[in-house]
């Protein structure tokens, strides 16, 4: 057992957990942040993607010890109160989700993609960058549309800030 201290969605937390605990287990089982999902055992589906210190990582492939001291943002932490993050809004407006299970990981990955490309994205790039996230419902068509839409919205909202 170790005490792990980290910041999750802006709040400092300290939790006593077994060393073998994965970050995703900490989030779901100990902090009740169940928006982050587990869809595979082999680090491929991306349903568990969260941001650690601003970068999209697979929380199923990280021991809590590795995240000690880090700042974690989950799907529950990206809206500002009732105001959705532009990526969340774009997924809704473009019907970029069906069953919703892969969606949190998709959104967290997609935000990271837009950050890295500064909004300069095309369809082929989005498809390549989404290869670590598997969706079984949408056929990706509307997810790609949503990411491209959000890239524009995020550029505008960044310019406004």
């Amino acid at each position: 057992m170790s005490t792990v201290k980290l910041t999750v969605n802006g709040k400092a937390v300290a939790v006593d957990v077994e060393d073998r605990t994965l970050l995703v287990q900490l989030l779901r089982d100990h902090l009740n942040l169940t928006g982050t999902h587990v869809g595979c055992d082999t680090s491929q589906c991306g349903a568990c993607v969260v941001h650690m210190d601003g970068k999209a990582v697979k929380s199923c492939t990280m021991l809590v010890g590795q995240a000690d001291g880090a700042s974690i943002t989950t799907i529950e932490g990206i809206a500002k109160g009732d105001e959705l993050h532009p990526m969340q809004a774009a997924f809704r407006d473009n019907h970029g989700l069906q069953c919703g299970y892969c969606t949190p990981g998709m959104i967290m990955s997609a935000i990271d993609i837009v950050h890295r490309y500064g909004g300069q994205l095309d369809e082929a790039t989005v498809r390549h960058e989404l290869e670590g996230n598997i969706c079984r419902c949408t056929g990706y068509h509307n997810i790609v549309k949503a990411v491209l839409d959000a890239a524009g919205r995020m550029k505008v909202s960044q310019a406004a800030e």
Partner: peptide, 14 residues
């Protein structure tokens, strides 16, 4: 959609 895009969906494992 709102519950799914904000991480508030409620699946069995949740």
């Amino acid at each position: 959609d709102k519950r799914f895009i904000t991480g508030k969906g409620r699946y069995v494992d949740d």
